Computed example of a mutant assay.
Amino acid sequence: MIERDHAPNAGTGLLGANFSRRNRQAPTDDRAGTGRWIAIDESGYDGDQLHGGDRYMILGAVAIDDAGAAAIVDTLRREAGIQKSAAEVKFQKMFTGGGAGQRRQLLGELLAPGGPLHDRASVYVIDKHYFVTAKLISLLLEERFHAVGYDIASNGAGRQFALDLATEGPRALGRDGFDRLISIAVGFFAKKNRTGERVSVDDLFTVIRESLAYARRRKAPQAKKAADVLEMLRMCRAEAEAFARERPDEATPTGELGLLDDSTDPLVTAVPTVILHASLRYGGRLQVLADDQRLLTDDKLDVLERGAAAVGMVHGLIKENHLQDLVRGRSVDHPCLQLADLVAGAGRAVARWHDGQDDPAGEGLHPVVAPLVDPDSLLMDEKPEDFTRIDTARAKRR
């Protein structure tokens, strides 16, 4: 285990007891021999609040330490004309909009094949709509099938049910109807609903019944697929009631909840997967530096570290813990985090463009982002290369 900065809130701008551990101010250094450094940053992440914002969440990762990153950032600053008064290089502030085309071209050259970041960067993408339908299946329907002796997780049936509802739901229910279903499901499973006062079991099953009735009235084939899944979910009230009963109360410290209470937080899926793939790619144990933000409390990082330690062994890919440490830092102190911000920002711009939004950054960067997309991203039935094609992937959403 590496030595962390132990002074309260050392190396972070976040204050309070929730941010008193897991802080790092000292530069990351691959030469120290304690494990290769990976910098990660997210874009479009709002915890388990998976409805109402951008449809996609991105986790950008760069396998580089601060010394290597500083050289790249300095060159980018000089060639992009970024003023010295700007303390950090940030994607949203400096690489978006119609007037930033030259800067995006320079960024594209860094990420493109042969560029200094291409073989070091990855983009993990989560389609929040698919993520929510997958949670409806895993937290309710899988439990019901398991009780009668069927495993729909390992045989792929559960994934297919989630795909059917996510891909066909918008056409079967209409955009507004599908959004309502997703919104109510998010509200029911969210941590903020621990007492069940915001969204009750009755609320959830009212929207499931109404969605089923609407889908049954439609005659299109895709409506039948969605209706079939909704019919199965309609039978899962007992499982929903069990979930509500087992939901921890507000007095339970977050750190004692393990992974269960974070079941609808996409980072719990994204971070362990990205760390595992980086370990398989680069070998050895890794040290991971995350950009500090309010949702990444010490308890949250504890949960993510436990998940990362377990995921490789669960899949049989790694026999021992491949994570040396998981800490947070400020991007102003760590050039590697600034590069992770650029990778995450580029991924989010492409995601917005892919979802039909007018985004010049996404349109320009999609050819170089495609090779960086993690093949295990949660992208419904799309392959990484499909995610960045306007002629096929975007057409599905029209």
Rank of each mutant, 00 (worst) to 15 (best):
Y214N: 08
G316Y: 08
A278C: 14
A309Y: 01
N193R: 06
L165K: 08
P375G: 12
R328M: 02
A270M: 13
L117M: 10
V125L: 02
L204G: 12
A86I: 03
D381F: 01
V268S: 15
D202N: 13
I208R: 02
L106C: 02
V314C: 06
L317G: 09
E142A: 14
L59T: 14
H354T: 09
G158W: 03
A223F: 08
F188S: 02
H354W: 00
D358W: 03
D265T: 12
V314Y: 09
A244Y: 05
N321A: 08
G16S: 10
A213R: 10
D391G: 04
T264D: 13
L280C: 10
E241H: 00
R198E: 14
A251M: 06
D65F: 07
L317K: 12
H6L: 13
E241Y: 00
Y124W: 10
A185E: 08
T252R: 13
I38V: 15
I72T: 02
V268P: 02
D119R: 14
K192S: 15
A213T: 05
A87G: 07
D151Y: 04
R144K: 15
D325C: 12
F205L: 09
R328S: 07
L296V: 00
R218Y: 01
K300L: 04
D386L: 01
D176A: 15
Q222N: 13
Q338N: 07
K319M: 06
R31L: 10
D202K: 05
E305F: 06
A361W: 02
G316M: 09
L107T: 00
V373A: 01
D66C: 08
G11L: 04
V368T: 13
V311T: 14
G60Q: 05
A346K: 00
G108F: 03
A17Y: 07
L139F: 06
Q222F: 05
I58N: 01
L110T: 07
S85P: 00
G362Y: 04
E256Y: 05
E382F: 02
S43F: 06
G68S: 08
D299S: 15
D292G: 07
G114P: 11
N23S: 15
L317M: 13
D381N: 15
E382G: 14
D358G: 04
D66N: 10
D261K: 03
L289V: 11
R77W: 00
E231Q: 12
L14D: 06
V229L: 06
L296T: 00
T34N: 11
L295N: 06
R159W: 01
A162G: 10
R285K: 15
R78N: 04
G345D: 13
S43H: 07
E3H: 11
P116D: 11
A32H: 08
D265N: 15
D249E: 13
K128A: 12
V201Y: 01
L50Q: 05
K191Q: 11
R281V: 03
A80V: 00
E256Q: 15
